[in-house]
Design a protein around this nucleic acid. Structure first.
Lengths: 259, 259
DNA sequence: CTCAATTTGTTCGTATGTATG
DNA sequence: ACATACATACGAACAAATTGA
């Protein structure tokens, strides 16, 4: 492996933190299993191309996290696994989105009844006349795992102000008989925590998040609902079977179509 | 906004880099538009709760990236946007995956004909007898944007060793008449760059990546193909319309089902 | 039991980076 | 621009614990 010091310029993050990240990854991925003795400090020194102290600093970080246990004269051992990750599975169809949201424990932390409109992408419909902004945090027990900025068409918001300020908006919108949802655009990207997200999710500024945008477009082409879900990166996963067309009538297995 | 110094403990990343991340985000998101004069250093000092020099260091980073232009006596201006992001749209069905892979410019960088088997998830089928490991890098022009570790059932690999060592494997597997693909499991998570990825994608160690795992299971329940795609986070996006059931016969709009 | 090899723990000196006021 | 304090990183030497011959 090339010297890390060369890669160092690329990231500006302190070296020992970079090394710790990689080691944590090795434990998570199972490459280093619980109970294993990991390479000696000297070996890691060579592998990563950094000084002894730097390796020790990285080990110290993981020791504080309970992942490593270093014993003088014996070696360094894997003493635990990171908390289970990726327990949140992003819904893969509209019904699943609605029902997953329905059971969420949310806390509305900020409301603007007359907010700046959201910035819409190319194919995300046209803006409504006005929007309300509802900012909420979603909890799993005590742990915040997502922050949501929801731009809700103001006329819809005003119809049930009380309700929208306390409960998830999506199920209510679906219930409205005079609202037809034509499209539900979903975009998943990787973002970084701004001060607001950092504060709400208790993560570091600039740390990555899974950003999931959901835009509902009605039969007039208007984006009546535009929400940005910022998920804690550790809980986020999206799983699907690209060949599961049970609902679509397509064959559930694949053979070549033509020669 | 709370003092940044308070959040600092959470991330261990140098303060001025955190500040730079937030400023970059503001430019990307359009909150600071090109040509705009941004707040004075004094105002930023107050807003972020950090020292003057720290703000200046952050501005210097963005100046090197061509995003900001500081003029003595006038102020600091937004002078550009980050390179267009999220140009890569992850395929949403199996055919799209195959055809997107088909046109990829890849370079195989490492081969193990008898590799350790991959670690499979709960519902990703059973292991084949043996696997070959093919590591490749995908390019967009000169820019590497993804690194792939592909575990390919060894019997398949041996059938066309030459071909598999030069061209994307997936299209070839689909062509094989005696291979039936029953499932194509896809899992998207956020990972971090290990030394290998860091080196291949020219990004910093520990920086986030979009990790997309693809597992093909045949009609015997065997995982004949297990690939981990590690995408550069800036190019990655997943876009879909959760109500687009054109192919499925479901209604293409949504009204409530029952009272 | 002792010795040597191995491995982590500790300390020094030096240079540079980060952050404040 | 300066003075100050602390963090990061290197290399090297030595101390202490463990292991096995």
């Amino acid at each position: 492996m090339a010297k890390l010091s060369l890669n160092y310029d690329r990231s500006r993050v302190p070296l020992y933190i970079q090394v710790a990240s990689v080691m944590r990854q090795r434990i998570e991925s199972g490459r280093w299993r619980e109970g294993d003795k990991i390479s000696t400090i000297e070996a890691l020194e060579t592998e990563f191309g950094v000084a002894r102290v730097t390796i020790r600093q990285a080990i110290e970080i993981l020791r504080e996290e309970g992942l490593l246990d270093a014993r003088q004269g014996r070696g360094t051992f894997v003493s635990g696994k990171p908390r289970e990750r990726h327990w949140l599975n992003l819904a893969n169809d509209f019904d699943a989105v609605v029902s997953s949201v329905k059971n969420n424990v949310i806390r509305i932390v900020h409301i603007e009844e007359e907010a700046q409109p959201p910035i819409l992408g190319d194919n995300e419909g046209t803006l409504a006349d006005a929007y309300a902004l509802l900012r909420s945090v979603q909890y799993n027990g005590d742990e915040p795992f997502a922050m949501v900025n929801l731009y809700l068409a103001r006329d819809l918001f005003l119809r049930e102000r009380k309700r929208f300020t306390h409960l998830p908006a999506l199920p209510r919108i679906v219930e409205m008989e005079d609202v037809t949802i034509r499209h539900c655009y979903q975009t998943v990207t990787i973002g970084v925590a701004d001060p607001e997200i950092s504060e709400r999710l208790k993560i570091g500024l600039g740390e990555p998040t899974a950003d999931c945008r959901l835009v509902l477009v009605d039969d007039h082409g208007v984006a009546i609902y535009a929400a940005d879900f910022h998920y804690h990166r550790n809980c986020f996963a999206l799983r699907r079977d690209l060949l599961d067309r049970a609902a679509s009538g397509k064959p559930s297995s694949y053979r070549r179509k033509a020669s």
